[in-house]
Every structure is written in structure tokens, then in C-alpha cells.
Simulated assay, not measured.
Amino acid sequence: MPVMSIRLSEEMADSLAALAQATGCSKSYLAVDALQGYLDREAWQVAEITKGLGEADAGDFASPGEVAAVTGKWTGTAG
């Protein structure tokens, strides 16, 4: 398994140590878990942007009725 070294601020290191103490998990476990969550969210966002760009390139846009339905949902005028 590859090993990586990172520099943390004192505040972040203290927060990580406190969380590790409170949860009974190792600092390494918590750091890897946080990094995995970040990577998953970023990969999802990139995939959704790529999908949206592909739809836009194909001319697949919302109809005026679909836009009105969403707008109504958020402005309280939905049917």
C-alpha cells in the first residue's frame, strides 16, 4: 500500500487527534476516510458536469414547460 506524507496546520492536527480520541479510530483511518469522501464527491461532480456538457452539445435542453415546473417548485407556484 502506498504511503503519503502531508503537512497539516497545528489546528487541523489537533482537531484530527481530538476526533480520533473521541471516536476510538486512528488518525490515519479518519484521514483516509475523509480523503475518500472528498474523492468520491469530486468524481461525482466531474461526471455530472461531463454528462451535462454532453447533453448540451447534443442540444438536449429543458423545454419551457420543464423550466416553468422547476421554477414553480422553488417559488411556491407549483401546480
Rank of each mutant, 00 (worst) to 15 (best):
E42Q: 13
A34Y: 05
G65Q: 05
L30R: 11
D33R: 11
K51T: 11
T77E: 12
K51M: 04
D40W: 00
G52Q: 00
A47F: 06
A22S: 12
A18N: 13
R41V: 12
V32R: 14
M1S: 10
G24N: 11
E66K: 00
T50H: 06
S5H: 12
M12G: 02
E55L: 09
I6S: 03
G65H: 03
D14N: 14
V70R: 10
A22H: 06
I6L: 12
A17M: 14
G72F: 06
V32N: 08
L8G: 15
D33E: 10
P64C: 00
D40C: 02
V46D: 01
I6F: 12
S63Q: 11
E11R: 15
L30K: 10
A69E: 10
S15F: 08
W44G: 00
W44H: 01
A20D: 06
G54P: 00
A68I: 04
M12A: 13
E11H: 15
S5P: 08
L53A: 04
G24I: 14
T77C: 05
T75R: 02
D60L: 03
V70K: 05
Q21N: 14
M12K: 10
A13N: 15
E66I: 00
V3N: 15
T50K: 05
V32D: 07
S5W: 13
Y38M: 02
L53T: 01
L16N: 10
P64Q: 10
C25I: 07
V3T: 15
D60I: 04
S26L: 04
A58H: 04
V32P: 01
E48P: 00
R41K: 11
K27S: 15
Y38R: 13
K51E: 04
K27E: 14
Q45S: 09
L19E: 14
A68K: 02
I6R: 10
G52H: 02
W44N: 04
R41H: 10
P2N: 09
A56P: 03
G65D: 09
G59H: 08
S9E: 15
E42V: 07
D40A: 05
S63R: 09
D40V: 06
L19A: 14
Y38L: 03
F61W: 05
V46M: 05
A17Y: 12
E42M: 06
G24T: 12
K73W: 03
L8K: 12
A20T: 09
S26K: 07
V46Y: 01
L53G: 03
D40F: 04
E48M: 09
T50S: 05
E48Y: 00
A56L: 13
P64I: 08
D14V: 13
T77A: 09
L35Q: 09
I49E: 11
S5N: 14
S5G: 14
A68H: 02
I49A: 08
P64D: 08
G79E: 09
A43R: 12
A13L: 13
A69L: 00
E42R: 13
R7D: 07
A20F: 04
A18Y: 11
G65Y: 00
K27C: 14
A62K: 01
L53S: 03
R41I: 01
C25S: 15
W74E: 11
E11K: 15
K51C: 04
Q36H: 00
A78Q: 11
A17F: 05
A62S: 04
T71K: 09
A22I: 04
G54D: 10
D33Q: 11
L19Q: 13
S63A: 01
A34R: 12
A17N: 14
A69T: 06
L35C: 12
G24A: 12
I6V: 11
